[in-house]
Amino acid sequence: MSVIDTIAIGDRFGAWTVTAKGRRLISGDSRRVCFCRCDCGTDLSMEAYALTSGGTTRCRTCSNRNKANMSHRLTHGGSETRLYRIWMLMRRRCSALTNPDYPNYGGRGISVCSEWNDFAAFREWANGNGYEAHLTIDRRDNNGNYEPGNCRWVGRKAQNRNRRDNIRYQWRGRQMLLSEIAEITGLPYSLIRQRVRRDGWQVERAASTPPGTRWQHEGRYNDIGL
């Protein structure tokens, strides 16, 4: 799925509203573009990446007016901050085809909501929703977009647990990671992981057998304690 396929008629990117999608000759090539209307009424067609990357958020007339009348907003004072780097990386992984993380984000149809094309809006949300310097942004639904209702700030440990490639096991009526089971039982994670993934134990047995227990397998006794 290309970037333009993730954009719907009516989507907003800054002051732009997407009114239609079609094709236009650009440097002699027929390319798919979005036809947009600025809040001031100016119509313009542009490639999808210009919108999703934040390369344009309003027409030139509005941009010049904004510079003249609201210059204090143009310098948000955050370009050297960690939060700004998080914001940039979030947008690049969803829209930049050359970004190494694109296949796992934009390539899967994940996008950043139009509201967050403005760093000031993203910063306001972050500061009002628990952002701290040691936390990372995490999507509750790994198949969902970056948007206020689907995002939260968590520690690195919690984010790693929410990776979509993590394997969860049925234990005590819940789907859980082995690391979570280890925390609850007090057994070493490495021991439970070895029992389940290498030795083929059922999770219930692996989580309830004390360390150092000898067990019989194929007629032999093996010491699986650490």
Rank of each mutant, 00 (worst) to 15 (best):
L83H: 10
A182Q: 07
N142L: 14
V154D: 00
Y131R: 09
E80T: 13
C113P: 12
L83T: 09
R172P: 08
N142F: 08
S71T: 03
P148M: 02
N99H: 15
A158K: 05
G109E: 10
R123N: 07
H76W: 13
Y131P: 07
T75A: 00
T75V: 15
D141G: 10
E132Y: 05
C151N: 02
L74A: 06
N162K: 07
N143K: 10
F122M: 05
M90K: 13
R92N: 12
N160T: 02
R168F: 01
N117T: 07
D101Y: 13
R82T: 13
T98I: 14
R172I: 00
L97M: 06
N145H: 05
L74E: 05
M90T: 07
G78I: 04
N143R: 04
E180K: 06
G155E: 11
Y84R: 07
T75G: 00
G144D: 06
A158F: 02
G144M: 07
W116C: 00
R123L: 05
P100C: 08
M88K: 06
Y131I: 07
H134C: 06
R108Y: 02
A96D: 15
W171F: 09
R73N: 02
N160Q: 11
N127C: 10
A120T: 13
G107D: 02
D138Y: 11
H134S: 12
A120R: 11
H134Y: 13
Y169G: 01
E124H: 09
R174S: 11
R139L: 08
R85S: 14
R108N: 10
Y84G: 08
N166A: 15
I184A: 04
Y102Q: 04
P103M: 10
L178K: 02
T98E: 14
R85D: 10
I167W: 02
S79I: 05
W125Q: 05
I137T: 12
A133K: 09
N127Q: 13
D118L: 05
N162Q: 04
